[in-house]
Design a protein around this nucleic acid. Structure first.
Lengths: 336, 336
DNA sequence: GATGTGTATCGAAACGATTCGATGGGGTCG
DNA sequence: CGACCCCATCGAATCGTTTCGATACACATC
């Protein structure tokens, strides 16, 4: 069942059916009604391969993401899907493994599928302006840090201020009287990753309060509970007199909390903990975890909005920086 | 840059380039090498819209899923993406909201995109054999229950035995001496949902041990911590003398645990808890939650395997039922 | 030298949509 | 009544592939 069949059955020309389906050009009401009824009756759906071929443009949006199963991302992905779907576009998801060139992978998809637009989510991008430009389709970077010194006019982005957020968390712990505060995050062999930016905020807070920075208090760990658990174990075994932990994700915090609790220490009695992200599980952990919460759903929503603005012809790139929020629950306490 | 350009530059015919790219037909080694070098040099990627149009068949796989952000699903989705990608196919993800007809939604995508295959994940399907057949492309139902009495030869599936799994959990609690065991799950206004099937197992265990089933011990709640929390609160306020809770998901269990702990009761001291799914967070909860664990990654993997077997021409449908596993950690204890 | 066989290659048609230039049949105006 | 216009509609060309029937050449066979 193709457009030709519909045309024949409706007793009109091919192009008339096309105009009805695309609401383009003029069609008399009678003809429109006739065609639509035939379309509905035969359950006709236009073939998008043919349409995309002719228009050399598809309506597919691609999402390139690092780590689908990360609960913070999972939540954002859900909203991205919802918003994209709401605009009548299909969503393609591709996971970018460590070590693959995200832009090159996207480039391939773009050529292959004539993509409508791309959202990149998570990670650190080591790409030049030129590489971004070569994409040739609208795109948005969401919760992504860039390594090269790229002119911001070359891309749109949605993020929070990682330095300030980490500063906020660390300052909070300091204000409660803590001096021996450790920091858990992932530090790959690169500059300007999320972990490194949050480290900056952590250091800044220490410095401002006259606490000397000691690398022994910082542990490298992936953004998952098992790694947080192991890192916190290592930390505790150093006997540094740690009274507080700041984790760069709630998942890490949950693992670290487990390490603390299973060592017979209490939270927040012996050790205070602050996480990062604001995932639902952190609230239902016991004790409820304090955290730096990112408005993930809004960030996803705005990412899609910006993308579709660009698709609609908007030419200036936007950079939306959301405010993170310190959520105080039950996992930190004041010390002498 | 299209196939015609490549042909011209290589000094060969269009069809020769096509044959080289598809490894079909005979091409002399010299010609093949020449063409491939030109392709690489110009970064040529064939346009899949044109290819799909001609072949009236694309290589895109679609995943129709209920609730992307559910941590158990998120994990499976990750593996599905990995496996599909490994086979060189793009993955399209569509979230099916409550109340929309999943098959109809898939049908539309199939016609539109000439899909290669579809994986349905999660939920309860109220569809007839005829409806499944009309899809016209290979598909697999993963962790899905069907309402209509559908001949199993009409579809392939990957699942666990929900009745037996719930029976296992409940029996375990009974074996520890519990009599007042409640059950938390989602019971929509339908038969044979996951919740209802697990309820069956719960009832069966009670019955076998001479414990009378009391609806007051069963609470309806969605598969998320906040709902588990609320449901457990309601349950506790009934003063039924509950000593154990069985939750139909770890997310529910975590919320329920929070309700118990924040009421001043201890786990497993006053209340034992068993969850379902085996998500990572359950292990790192404190206390670590006992759970019925489903091998999500394997289930995802096998789903993709079955799908590609069907695509490759396999004609008999398979039904793989995985074994769930009772994982004992620290959230239940023996009572007198 | 006519015939047959096999190998490497070619080009035209087709897939199902969009779009643009062309057409035909009223109606209006002078 | 002819000139003109406008509205509704039509069909051919096109997008970039795949594929099938045709071709061209070399070599062996009788």
């Amino acid at each position: 069942m193709n457009i030709k069949d519909i045309a024949k059955i409706s007793g009109v020309g091919i192009s008339t059916v096309s105009r009805v389906l695309n609401n383009s050009g003029v069609v008399s009401d009678a003809t429109r009604a006739k065609v639509l009824s035939v379309v509905k009756q035969h359950n006709y759906v236009p073939n998008s391969n043919a349409r995309n071929l002719k228009k050399t443009q598809s309506n597919t949006i691609a999402l390139m993401v690092k780590g689908i199963s990360n609960p913070f991302f999972a939540n954002m992905i859900k909203e991205v899907e919802r918003q994209v779907h709401l605009r009548g576009c299909p969503l393609m998801i591709q996971q970018v493994e460590d070590g693959v060139d995200e832009i090159a992978a996207a480039m391939q998809l773009i050529k292959e599928k004539n993509l409508y637009g791309v959202i990149f989510m998570g990670g650190t991008y080591d790409h030049s302006e030129e590489e971004f430009r070569q994409l040739g389709v609208p795109f948005v970077l969401t919760t992504i840090t860039t390594m090269k010194d790229v002119d911001p006019s070359a891309f749109s982005s949605v993020s929070i201020d990682d330095v300030t957020s980490a500063y906020k968390a660390t300052s909070y712990l300091i204000s409660l009287g803590h001096r021996n505060i450790c920091f858990l995050a992932r530090f790959p062999f690169m500059v300007n990753t999320i972990g490194n930016r949050r480290l900056l905020g952590y250091k800044k807070a220490l410095e401002e309060h006259g606490i000397e920075y000691d690398p022994a208090f910082v542990e490298d760990c992936e953004y998952a509970p098992s790694f947080g658990f192991a890192a916190a174990k290592r930390l505790l075994s150093k006997n540094l007199g740690v009274t507080a932990m700041f984790a760069a994700s709630d998942a890490i915090a949950i693992g670290a909390a487990k390490a603390v609790l299973s060592s017979g220490l209490s939270i927040p009695g012996d050790v205070s903990i602050v996480g990062f992200d604001g995932i639902e599980m952190a609230e239902y952990y016991h004790p409820s975890l304090d955290t730096i919460s990112q408005p993930g759903v809004e960030m996803a929503h705005v990412s899609v909005e910006i993308l579709f603005d660009l698709i609609a012809g908007e030419t200036t790139n936007r950079h939306v920086v959301f405010e993170s929020m310190l959520v105080k629950r039950g996992s930190s306490r004041k010390v002498n």
